[in-house]
Design a protein around this nucleic acid. Structure first.
Length: 579
RNA sequence: CGGGGCGUAGCGCAGCUUGGUAGCGCGCCUGCUUUGGGAGCAGGAUGUCGCAGGUUCAAAUCCUGCCGCCCCGACCA
């Protein structure tokens, strides 16, 4: 491709509405342009990178035995009513009516469509397992799209669905996808980590997210310093504290203290001159309409998802003031466990606490020297807190580490959630009707590209890993009006193109500085600079974008040198060959 | 949906408080010079000042309503 002919509008200044680095660089490098909130156009440079990601995905999905299909984006409401998600999915699901007033939605995901397709066509265990995937545009009417293509409303996604006859088969399908995903993200040149995750509204029993490590990521994750445990912060378990021998500590008499307008942990600890570790927080939740009091040590935070999963409820939120007053008889800020009219659950952080402070369920009062058993009882302790770095690994008790990441892929064991609701069954060996067991597996293509930029950039722009680079090589003659330079550039360009190298020839009549800045900004891994001084010696310069290393190479050796550089940079992230 | 901010040339911004000829930098076009890290000089083009009402002799500027976009929160694969 000739730069002079390419639609590649680069920007010198940072667009004012871009916050994160990947968004800024995608705009500046002419990869994307915004059409509307959360809706983006991909320009040629950006789309070339998308196609690189898609190609890697295709190769690895095909290798893992999946087959590519292409499903409609517009989906009839009836299918979603069948699965029950027409009601449950909420406002993210973009609904509309056609001219006959029939209801439809734009596909945010395709469990319904694929399950419908499969139930109509697959009838016997002999036809199973099957794994079908597509790469397609999804639409989710996000409450707040942000960070460019990282969280957009319209976005590209690879989604795969597996159908198995039995649990062992489903396990195998899941494991194969898990391995395929590891290969995909490794081949993309990403530093990533698979983590255990909550399965959310997609549902199902078990899932892993693939997190690209980046401080700008929206998700928190924890991982063990010793063993393989890693999980999304939403899900991360912690090992309960060692049970200490508390018998030596005498239980002091319960005392009510006047604490006028003292509500928060900070206020209470300052006012009563105790540490937050001496206080128990009582959080009132509304769980499917029922009040639940969650007790946790003052310096810890409640993980709502853990509470939700522990209670097994559908909806959970912090209770409104009227519910708080109903169960405590006091306004917000003075809730405690003693005498509360709500189910009580306690985090493990209470295990070794004695003579602690909590709200008195009376306005402007707290109580001191509260003790579990004597003053109120707890049916069971559970892990309900947000994990911290001071917590111990739930598997091996070693130290946990915290990091931030970008979720680029998610694999779910769906079980029979959709196949049962929609009647996707088959006849087994004995002629008996059985429900298919499903899995689903997603990768955000645009998000993968953005995540890659988050990990690979410097002050001059993007630094593409070779496998995702829109071009492998850029040829930069420093002055196109110097015929010797221009001719050399043209000849090298032709010969590299003939060898199948993806090369951009910067044939613009611009000064060298402008070309260098643009080459750095768009992040092409290898730049061949053709200038008068080195050319007089029969040489050109090869400069690596990542290290900045420059080597002068004899013209007759350039092609060979480039081919070997490219080859070594294509495969350096994955051992073994790939088709 | 709640809170905050912004909408002026392709991009980044000033002007608005105190109403009166719409500006700056970059980019763009022409010419000359220059040619290895975003060149210099000279000349030039480009604006329904987000939209609609209102106040006024006069509105980018004041008032009202609406729309769009960004940030924080709630929410979310």
């Amino acid at each position: 491709m000739r730069y002079s002919e390419m639609f590649l509008p680069t920007e010198r200044e940072i667009p004012s509405d871009a916050e994160v680095i990947s968004h800024q660089l995608m705009l500046r490098a002419g990869m994307i342009r915004k059409l509307s909130a959360g809706i983006y156009c991909y320009l040629p440079l950006g789309y070339r990178v998308i196609r690189k990601v898609e190609q890697i995905i295709r190769e690895e999905m095909n290798r893992a035995g999946a087959q590519e299909v292409f499903l409609p984006m517009v989906q009839p409401a009836e299918l979603w009513q069948e699965s029950g998600r027409w009601e449950y999915y909420g406002k993210e699901l973009q609904r509309f009516r056609d001219r006959h007033d029939r209801e439809y939605c734009l596909g945010p995901t395709h469990e319904e469509v694929i399950t419908d397709l499969v139930r109509n066509e697959l009838k016997t265990y002999r036809q199973l397992p099957k794994n079908l995937y597509q790469i397609q545009t999804k639409f989710r009417d996000e409450i707040r799209p942000r960070f460019g293509v990282m969280r957009s409303r319209e976005f590209g996604m690879k989604d795969a669905y597996s159908f198995d006859a039995d649990e062992e088969g489903a396990e195998l399908s899941y494991a194969r996808m898990f391995e395929a995903y590891k290969r995909i993200f490794a081949r993309c040149g990403l530093r990533f980590r698979p983590v255990e995750a909550d399965s959310g509204t997609i549902g199902g029993s078990f899932s892993h997210e693939f997190m690209v490590m980046a401080d700008s990521g929206e998700d928190g994750l924890v991982f063990c310093s010793e063993c393989a445990y890693a999980a999304n912060l939403e899900k991360a378990e912690v090992h309960p504290p060692e049970k200490a021998d508390m018998s030596a500590i005498e239980e002091l008499p319960l005392t009510e203290v006047h604490t006028p307008n003292i509500r928060t942990i900070e206020e209470v600890s300052a006012f009563l001159d105790v540490t937050p570790q001496d206080i128990v927080k009582t959080m009132i939740f509304n769980a499917d309409g029922q009040p639940v009091a969650v007790l946790i040590r003052g310096d810890e935070e409640v993980n709502e998802i853990k509470v939700k999963n522990y209670l097994g409820c559908n909806e959970i939120e912090l209770a409104m003031d009227d519910m708080i007053e109903e169960v405590t008889g006091a306004p917000r800020g003075f809730a405690g466990a003693v005498g509360i009219r709500a189910r009580i659950v306690a985090d493990n952080s209470l295990l070794n606490m004695k003579n602690f402070v909590m709200g008195a369920n009376r306005e402007d009062y707290h109580v001191r020297n509260v003790n579990v058993g004597r003053d109120f009882s707890i049916a069971a302790f559970a892990d309900l807190k947000i994990a911290r770095e001071t917590d111990a690994c739930p598997r091996c008790r070693k130290a946990l580490s915290l990091a931030r990441g970008i979720e680029v892929g998610h694999v779910f064991k769906l079980g029979t959630k959709y196949s049962k609701a929609m009647g996707a069954s088959f006849l087994d060996r004995n002629g008996k009707d059985q429900t298919m067991i499903m899995g689903c597996y997603g990768i955000g293509t645009g998000r993968t590209v953005a995540a890659c930029i988050e990990q690979n950039n410097d002050e001059n722009g993007i630094v593409w890993p070779m496998p995702l680079a829109p071009f492998q090589v850029i040829i930069t003659p420093v002055n196109i009006n110097d015929k010797a330079l221009a001719d050399t550039a043209e000849r090298l360009y032709d010969s590299l193109v003939a060898k199948g190298v993806e090369v951009l020839l910067d044939d613009r009549d611009e000064r060298a500085g402008v070309k260098f800045k643009d080459a750095d900004l768009i992040g092409i891994p290898i730049r061949v600079t053709i200038g008068p001084k080195k050319l007089a010696e029969g040489k050109v310069e090869i400069r690596m974008r990542d290290t900045g290393e420059v080597n002068a190479i004899l013209l007759e050796q350039v092609e060979e040198t480039l081919l070997s550089q490219i080859a070594s940079k294509m495969g350096e992230n994955v051992s073994g060959s790939h088709d």
